[in-house]
Design a protein around this nucleic acid. Structure first.
Lengths: 212, 212
DNA sequence: AGTTGTGAAAAAGTTCACAGCC
DNA sequence: GGCTGTGAACTTTTTCACAACT
């Protein structure tokens, strides 16, 4: 069995979302590709890494494929997350996931914590904001796998280490600093909105406008 | 002159941020790499695509390098952006950039629009929410280069097309659908928070916990 | 006829190793 | 001695082309 490219894993959630939304019984790699913005070859190769789920000449069974991807991503086991930082971004995120923008209740935000006494105890969606002091306790209590960092950059490195120490397995870091815990097993995924926009600036200047 | 890898461009903003924050006069590729989480070879190669900015045996002059990257990313020209959708995510984003999380006033959010009459006219940070009907007008008026989509998925494809039609050069898409305008010149960058978390789920299950 | 699954080729991106300069 | 700049080796990822199957 060969190693599976990281890039392939990252595309699976997009396939999954469209599969849960589409009305069809059967789909082809071309349909899946067009809906998600990837090439049909890419789709076939990605899926083939995990087995032969399709039928030649026919396509893929939507229900079966959905279940397979669900299982591959381990979403069937239900991953639990904690959001640290109940500022604008943190609360937006909690409400976003709460509102059911997610495919199914596969990634569940169990807790939202902050260090501001004024915010602690307030309600955000269905979740009550807890004190950041209870971080370790909450991670253990809910068996949290993912920590989401939406704190100011001054706090991010320290809180990142606390999350790793407490036992989370992955961190989604929105803070504008590079967070690298001392635990090599903890997977850190940075998402920096400002950096993203600055990179876009380059592409904005690249090509001539399509309108004059 | 060779083509510059996309991946290199995406790393430049991270270098830039650290350069604007660091107190040093001179830095080495090793320092820059450690601060941003990349290897020193990577740093040197990225910078060398655009010219020889460093001094062998010494390192890079912080001020000069900062200005160079600023210029390369075309941030010196000041890119202007519009945010479509004044929901939780849209307002969080506006306040986030407003609060000066950004390096300098390089990417500036000029307008925030929504289709909800209740929200239109309210103030978010320093920006007044306008009607989405004025989208095209605002894009022209402020010479907007970047459109940020934080609308529900039902609206995303249509608004994306309107933004492209109005003349934006790049779109940052937070909506949970693949937005591909009919204008090939318009660069679309998707950021899907839910998909990101689902992909993390795979990595969470990957390795044994570092604590038992 | 139509579509998957896959080896081979190509392209993109990263790391290595060291010459070249201060 | 120390650090940059860079060709070469390597690795990863994508695309191509087509055999295999329904």
């Amino acid at each position: 069995m060969q190693r599976i490219p990281d890039a392939a894993i990252r595309r699976l959630p997009a396939y999954l979302r469209w599969l849960t939304e589409c009305e069809e019984e059967r789909v082809t790699s071309v349909m899946l590709g067009q809906a998600t913005g990837y090439s049909s070859e890419q789709v076939r190769k990605d899926l083939a890494y995990f087995g032969a789920f399709g039928t030649r000449g026919v396509g893929y069974d939507v229900g079966a494929l959905r279940d397979e991807i669900y299982r591959i991503l381990k979403l069937d086991q239900g991953v639990r997350a904690i959001v640290v930082g109940a500022g604008h971004l943190g609360t937006a995120l909690v409400r976003y996931v709460d509102q059911g923008h997610q495919v199914r209740h596969d990634v569940k935000i169990m807790a939202l914590v902050d260090n501001n006494p004024v915010i602690i105890g307030t309600q955000v969606g269905s979740i009550r904001v807890e004190s950041v002091d209870r971080l370790e306790e909450l991670v253990h209590q809910y068996d949290i796998g993912i920590g989401v960092l939406t704190v100011p950059k001054e706090a991010a490195v320290i809180v990142g280490d606390r999350l790793a120490e407490a036992g989370v397995r992955a961190i989604l870091n929105f803070a504008p600093v590079s967070v690298c815990t001392h635990y090599p097993d903890v997977f850190v995924q940075p998402i920096d909105l400002t950096l993203e926009m600055q990179a876009l600036s380059y592409f904005v200047g690249q090509k001539a406008p399509h309108r004059l």
